[in-house]
Amino acid sequence: MSFLQYNNSKPFLRWAGGKSWLTKHLYNIRIGEYQNYHEPFLGGAATFFYLNPDRSYLSDMNIDLVNTYLAVRDEARLVIEALETFTNTESFYYEIRSKVFESSAEKAAKFIYLNQTSFNGIYRVNLKGVYNVPFGFRKKNFLDRHTILSAQTALQGTEIFESDFYSTLDNINERDLVFLDPPYTVSHNENGFIKYNEKLFSYDDQIRLSDMINKIRERGAFYILTNAAHPIVEEIFGNGDRILRLNRANLIGGFNAGRGQTSELIFTNTNL
């Protein structure tokens, strides 16, 4: 059995919409004992690293992201060695962005480097599937060896794989805990629609996710869902379980993105 336990590992990736801000609220969500942990929208995995579960299933549709986690889990030192040859300059950034690597460690190093030195840490590809985020002019060091090695330790005992979120139901059993952080179809506070990639998490996907949650509940498992504070979201996921409205700083977007406080909704049955 797992239970809420703080771990000193933390995300090694920046992630637009990441949930590091949420971890300080997890005591209010009242997570008790659970069996396996599941996170089918992996992203930066802030909640995974914070909870430090004994046994986990981590997945995402982004194969480059999945392969990066696999490389950090299995060959972190080779990833670090590759990163040590990189430099944080505009010219080198675009050189690496266009370069094709062969080894899994070098591919992971490229992913981490671009993530840490790009504009706002956004993962975005064009219609051809090519990553096209510009250089971010960040002064912060892109290589944090301790964080990567700590992540490697935390990732031992995890299954990491590429999958559509709905297919992960095959692994979910009674008293498992499922953390769901889907791409947001609508932006916060009724401000319209957003799109970070060529594949939008559509309204139909939200309906599929709601059906998945019903099946999670039927199996006697626990779930925590984060989503934008929006009437449509409340309509789709308001199934009688507990709903929390939390405020956080809006850190996504450019200088004119109206950064400030936004609200997010947390749906959960963990208090049952």
Rank of each mutant, 00 (worst) to 15 (best):
F237C: 06
I122E: 04
Q116S: 12
V186C: 01
R208S: 12
T185Y: 13
N126I: 11
T117L: 01
I236T: 05
I148S: 02
I213H: 05
S187D: 11
F201E: 07
S103D: 03
G136T: 11
P183T: 04
N171E: 13
D241A: 04
L244M: 13
I194L: 14
S202Y: 07
Q206G: 10
L177I: 09
N126M: 09
G157R: 08
L244H: 07
S150T: 12
D241L: 04
R242P: 00
N239A: 10
D205Y: 02
E190T: 12
D204P: 07
N171K: 15
K195E: 13
I216Y: 01
R242T: 14
T147W: 00
L225M: 06
I122M: 13
L209D: 08
Q156G: 00
R138F: 08
I122N: 02
S104Q: 13
S118T: 08
S167W: 03
E190N: 14
V178P: 09
V130I: 14
E234I: 01
K139T: 14
I213K: 03
P182F: 02
H146N: 13
K215C: 08
Q206H: 15
I172V: 15
N126S: 01
E106N: 13
I207C: 11
Q152V: 05
N189S: 11
D144N: 15
V233D: 00
F135E: 09
V125D: 02
P134V: 11
N141Y: 10
K215S: 11
V186A: 01
H146W: 07
I236P: 02
G136N: 07
H230I: 02
I194N: 06
N115A: 05
Y203A: 04
K139E: 14
S103F: 06
M212S: 06
I172S: 08
R138L: 14
V130Q: 10
D205I: 09
L143F: 13
N132V: 11
Q116H: 11
I194E: 12
A109L: 12
N197V: 04
V125N: 01
G220N: 10
E218L: 12
N197C: 08
E162P: 00
V130R: 09
F111Q: 10
D211A: 15
K107A: 02
D176W: 04
Y223N: 01
E106M: 13
A105Y: 03
N126H: 10
I122A: 01
N126F: 11
P183G: 06
L169M: 12
G157A: 03
T117P: 13
F142K: 06
I216N: 06
I148L: 13
P182C: 03
N115Y: 07
M212V: 07
N214S: 14
H230E: 07
F135D: 08
G240K: 09
N141Q: 14
N214G: 15
T168N: 03
E235I: 02
G136C: 08
D241K: 04
L177K: 04
F165V: 01
I232N: 00
D164S: 04
Y123P: 08
S187P: 00
V125I: 13
T226K: 02
R124Y: 03
K110W: 10
V186H: 02
I232S: 00
Y113A: 03
L149W: 08
G121Y: 11
I112R: 06
E218R: 14
